[in-house]
Design a protein around this nucleic acid. Sequence first.
RNA 1: GCGCCUGUAGCUCAAACGGAUAGAGCGGCGGGCUUCGAACCCGCAGGCUGGGGGUUCAAUUCCCUCCAGGCGCGCCA
Length: 524
Amino acid sequence: MIRPKIKKSLSDLFPDEKIVVDTVPRGKQGDYSTNLAFLLASKRNDSPINIANEIAPKIKIPAISRIYVEKPGFVNFEIDRNYLLKHIYENELSFNIDNSRRVLIEFVSANPTGPINIVSARAAAVGDSLVRLLNKVGYDAHSEYYVNDTGKQAEMLAISVAQRIREIHGETPEIPENGYHGKYLIPLAEDIAAQGDIKADKLKEYSINYFVENHRKTLSRFGVTFECWSRESDIRAKQYPETALKKLKNTGKTFEQDGAIFFRATDFGDNRDRVLITSDQRSTYLLNDLGYHIHKIERKYNQLINLLGPDHHGQIKGLIGGIEAMGYPAEFIKIIIIQHVSFKKEGKAVSMSKRTGEIFTLDELIDQVPKDVIRFFFLMRSCSQHLDFDIDLALKQTDENPVYYVQYAHARIMSIIKHGLDQGIDISAEPELGLIEQPEEINLAKHIARYDEVLEDAARAFEPFMVTYYLLDLARIFHYFYQKVKVVSEDKGLSRARIFLIQKAAQVFKQGLDILGISCPDKM
RNA sequence: GCGCCUGUAGCUCAAACGGAUAGAGCGGCGGGCUUCGAACCCGCAGGCUGGGGGUUCAAUUCCCUCCAGGCGCGCCA
């Protein structure tokens, strides 16, 4: 990484300043810039441009060949060409920004009362990519799926399935109003009916397992696998909710009212106190969830990340407050809200409700749109951004999806390298880096060198989409380079040097797309 | 009513921690293959960053207010 080297050199000169090193906008001199002169200006009561001119000559950094001062006071640094190429040549594209972090990322966790619908697809894409990204930068990150297999909705599922079985036997089904009316229960009911009678008390377990397996298969088609599937029934059987309740009671942050036990969540910034045990002595979702989080922490994780939909934001304060009250640092847990996706079809919004049975399943979407396209689409947006997904657009115009733009760049490179081999270029030979000097070549090299910086930024922000944008930029720069520079020519030494450069680009494409969970074919 | 998110080009979106002339893709118009992959490249058009006020050397970014949209606000999960 070049950026931290600049920052360190500046910090050594001015240890008291909060120095920012940024990239330079297009069209300006230099590659990286600092705001240092602005910071000093207010303290010294002088103009930023004067200070910039004063400090610029004092800065000596091996990676930097030239320093420019730009109005109104930026100090810009140009990377030394030889340093840059050597840096790329020696960089193995693997690094550690923090190897002490053991991270558990819980995401999707859809209720096993029906097929996964496309609302969960965004969380699946982001969560899976986040696991890959964090592992790539040196964290020890793992994926987790929480199965809500107890409680009222599980009961309601069993009741609804029982009615569908009656229907198969020629009777009129009577699914309760708040039951599950979707036709997707019919294959399950047929499956059960074909096996003869399953006892009523086994119906719930069987149905839950059916959908858990269904979720696992669907997500696997989407390229998403979970290392751990935790079950609420297991958490309960191991008495984690009771443990959580005991811990909370010990802190004095609970109270009784109307026969129920409350958690004093308002002490932790919540807008109301939250029920832990209802007046009819059932544990609430919050208490079970707190128990579940004890279970996570007991597994030696020091960073828990939960991806939630925007409809869950109301429960964040209660959960974090509860974890804090139980004596764990609040920073242990990070909640990421993945904003709402609006699906549109034939120009109008698609409404989805599992209870009424109006759903568009993830399986149906994958049947029609390649998973690479779907994932890329979701990973082009920041999590905090609402997102419109036009299904017709995805179905009809997949060729225009930018994912192909990136994949094409990689395939093009592989084709050029093959061509080079056919022309007798020895790609095992040491490249003569000094031959790389065209502006388009240097620009490509500079962008390759930024890869690990982008990964660091994306990992610290928990935002895989930053990788997506980087890859689109790199593809654009490569395609332009291709237009201007002939890689394979009569000059074997030059050809070898240029192949080295595009090989590095290909490695970045491959690894970057892998972080996004998107394939990277050699031919298209 | 309260809380969270959002408002940037015709459309979909960028612009990390406040920085330089607010950038891409799609769509529109005009160019470019005898040459390593045209799923590509180049150029043009298109913006009071929802309105107004404030803080700052500097605001798309922070604060206030108004307007518009989305999602929440159970002893449900």
